[in-house]
Every structure is written in structure tokens, then in C-alpha cells.
Computed example of a mutant assay.
Amino acid sequence: MSAAIVERLNGLGFGAAQLGNLYRETSERDAHEAVGAAWEGGIRYFDTAPHYGLGLSERRLGRVLQHLPREEIVVSSKVGRLLRPGPGTGDDLANGFAVPDDLQRVWDVSEVGIRRSLEESLERLGLDRLDILYLHDPEEGPEEQALAEGLPALARMREEGLVGAIGVGSKDQRVLTRAVRTGLLDLVMVSGRYSLLEQPAEADLLPACREHGVGVVAVSVFNSGLLARQEVPDDAHYEYGPAPQPVLQRAWELAAIARDHGVTLPDLAVQYPLRRPEIRAVALGMRNASQVRTNLQRLQAPVPQAAWDAVDALPPLDLPGARA
């Protein structure tokens, strides 16, 4: 079953962090219309997590998915953080989400915690099963326990038929590579470490995935919005902070290549990871129907081979401090 699910990932996926009010509020209408536009545009992979808006993303996504043909969609969520009663005195913007802090995240990568997290995600989503379950950001929590106890627990859940496929999602290619080498995974979700801007995952992660037959979903391919517009401003952000000069310089070089070949920087950013056979899909965060339609156009924009040749001719961007 797991191989069949991985094979169904193809092209563009819908990342639902914005449905959890990432950085700012997303209206109920926009959330509903975004998922609907994704379905109408042919997107069949939808990814969420309890972390996104303290469960709000799962609830909003589930309300729409419940009305779609379940056998035609692939749904993933994540484990590692349980949601438990919070202080209820403010908001969750310190964690990036514009929601009340009536819940809080509690790390639990034990088998009991992971199974409980799956049950609670299914309840929020209103679904009877998940196709893919990822261990979320193990490097930010108890990493050793996550790999030693959490991954085998996920494998048992897959064997029991509770989930179709299992993986790990992280921005840290080191921990992803460790997880792949256990031989337990079907997928990894790599955030920002294989993109038009930078490709540190080429060194170890992608070869390990190829060796172990593990599929890859690339996310954060705009690198914190740096590549999301054709014109890259001087005060652009990278890794959630001001972009260092070498990063800005590379982004300007890439924008010039796009312009010289009649495409846009975001066109290149969306399509670049899919040139690698290991990468099954690119999942993009989309807040409303307009963003969905724009990203579908980016995926389909014709890119001349000369543009890719110019991109490939650039030396690797060496930013070891940004690859954690």
C-alpha cells in the first residue's frame, strides 16, 4: 500500500499551514475556497499538521475534504506535538500563528503519544484514515527518542493498516538522512533544503533516499518568500530573518535568468525540485483561491532548457550556517 501511495504523489500538493492562520488571519471563506480551487485545479495531495494553528488547519481542511471523493485524494498530517489546554491569555504568534493560545503544544514522540496524536488528528479532520503520517520536526524536540521509539512506532502503525505510508518532515537534512537510513520510511518532507536557491540535500539526503527507495516531498521552495516574486527587494527575508548578502545576490542572479528567458522567478522555484526523480511533489502553502490558481500556472509555465542550463551553471550557494 505504501508504494502505491507514494506513486500517487505527482506535481503540486496543497500545504495547509496558511489555513491555520500562519502569520496572519485567513478567513473561513478564503480557506474553504482555497481547498476547493485546489481540487478543481487537479491537486489531489493535501498536507496539514496539528502544529498549524493549534489544530485550526486540520479542522478547516477536514471540513472541505469530507465532501470530496476520499479514494481520489491523498491526505497527510503529522505527529510529535500533542495539543493540550493552554493559558488562554493571548495568542500563538510567538509560534507564527494568529490564533488564541487556548491550546499549547506538548512534545510526545512515544508510541502512546503518537497513536493518540493520530486519533486526535482524525477527529479534527473528520476522516477515518490518513494516507501519510509524518514525524514532525524531530530535531526541535527529543530527537533521539523520536528516531529510536517514534519511527518504529510509525512502522508498526503502518503494518497494522492505521496509516498507508510513513515519513519524517524537517528542515534539517541531517536528521532526515538519519531517518532514511533506518530503512523504515516511505517518504521524507524536506523544507527549504532542496530548492532553486540552495541544494544541500544533494550531498547526503537525496542519495540516501535513492538508495532506500524513499520518496521526497519538497516544501518551502520559496525559501521564506525570497523567491516568491520576480523582483527581489533589498530587505527580503530568508530563514525567517533578513537575507544575508550572498543569498540576496544569488536571488538577483536567478531573477535575471528568469527574466532573460521569458519566465518568472517563482515559475523556476516551483518547477526546479521536480527535475529530480526522487522528488515526487512540491507542496505549497496557499491561503486563497487566487494563490492556488497562480501556483498552478507557475507549475505549468513553459521553461526553456536554456534557462535550466543557466541555473545549473551557477556554483552552489555555500551557506553551512543556514543548513541546520
Rank of each mutant, 00 (worst) to 15 (best):
P302A: 06
L226P: 09
R259P: 07
A283Q: 05
Y238L: 13
Q245G: 08
Y240T: 02
V219F: 11
A218E: 05
G262S: 04
R275K: 14
D235G: 05
P242Y: 08
R275H: 11
A256L: 14
L254I: 07
A236I: 11
G285Y: 01
G285P: 03
Q297P: 04
R275W: 11
A256R: 15
G285Q: 03
P273Q: 08
L299Q: 01
L226E: 09
E239C: 14
L284Y: 01
R275M: 12
G285L: 01
P304D: 13
A218M: 06
Q297S: 11
R259A: 15
L296A: 04
Q271P: 06
S290V: 13
A289E: 14
A258S: 11
V219D: 05
A283M: 07
P302T: 02
T294I: 10
A236W: 13
V247R: 08
L248P: 14
A283L: 14
M286G: 00
Y238N: 08
L254S: 07
L274Q: 04
S220H: 09
L268V: 04
G285N: 00
P244G: 09
V303K: 10
Y272S: 00
W252V: 12
R276K: 15
N288Q: 12
R276Q: 15
Y272R: 03
A218C: 07
P277H: 11
A269F: 03
L274S: 02
G262F: 09
Q305M: 14
Q230K: 12
V221K: 01
V270N: 00
N223K: 11
R293N: 00
P273I: 00
Y272C: 01
P246T: 06
Y272N: 02
F222A: 01
R280Q: 14
Q291I: 00
Q300N: 14
A283H: 04
Y272K: 00
L254E: 07
H237E: 15
A269T: 01
D260E: 15
L265I: 02
L226N: 05
V303M: 09
V221L: 02
L254V: 08
Y240A: 06
D260A: 15
R275S: 11
A269Y: 05
L248D: 13
N295M: 02
N223T: 08
D260K: 13
L284M: 07
A228L: 08
V263F: 09
P266G: 00
I279W: 12
D235H: 12
Q245Y: 09
L268H: 10
Q249V: 13
S220L: 06
L296G: 02
P242N: 04
V221T: 02
R259W: 10
E239Q: 15
E231G: 07
L299I: 04
V247P: 11
T264E: 10
P302E: 03
P246L: 07
R250F: 10
R287H: 13
V292L: 00
A243T: 10
V263Y: 12
R280I: 04
L254K: 11
N295Y: 01
P277T: 03
